[in-house]
Amino acid sequence: MSNEFGSYIPLCSALAGGLLSLIGSWGAVWFSTRSAINRDSHQLANAFKGEMSALVHIAELRNYAASLREQAKWCTDNNAVGFFSAPSRKEYRAVYKANVGKLGSLKGDLPKQIAIVYTQMASLQEDLKTLDEIHIGTRTDAWMGQPVTASQRYSGMALLIEDTISKAKATLTEIDRLYPVSAR
Rank of each mutant, 00 (worst) to 15 (best):
H57T: 14
N79D: 09
V81S: 01
A54V: 04
S85K: 08
H57P: 06
N78W: 04
A72F: 03
S67R: 05
V81H: 00
S88M: 08
T76K: 07
N46C: 04
R89H: 13
V56S: 01
E51R: 03
K73S: 15
P87G: 07
S53F: 03
Q71W: 06
K49E: 04
E51M: 12
A66Y: 13
S85M: 01
N46L: 10
A65D: 11
E70P: 12
F84Y: 13
I58V: 06
K49Q: 10
T76H: 10
L61M: 06
A54N: 03
L55M: 10
P87H: 13
Y64N: 15
F84T: 05
A72P: 15
A59I: 01
E60V: 05
S88E: 13
W74S: 12
M52V: 14
G82N: 09
V81T: 02
N79S: 08
A65F: 08
S88G: 11
S53P: 01
G82Q: 02
E70T: 08
E60M: 10
K73I: 10
L68D: 01
N78R: 14
A59N: 07
T76N: 02
D77K: 03
A72Q: 12
A59G: 02
L61W: 04
N63Q: 15
L61I: 11
F84D: 15
Y64S: 11
V56L: 03
F48G: 02
N63G: 12
N78Q: 04
A59C: 04
A54H: 08
Y64Q: 15
A80M: 06
C75A: 03
E51F: 07
K49V: 06
S88Q: 13
E70V: 10
N63Y: 15
F48S: 02
N46H: 04
A47F: 15
I58M: 03
R69P: 03
P87W: 04
S85L: 07
S67D: 11
A66P: 07
S67M: 07
R69D: 04
R89N: 05
F84I: 11
N63I: 13
A65C: 05
A65H: 03
P87R: 12
S53I: 04
A47V: 09
A59Q: 01
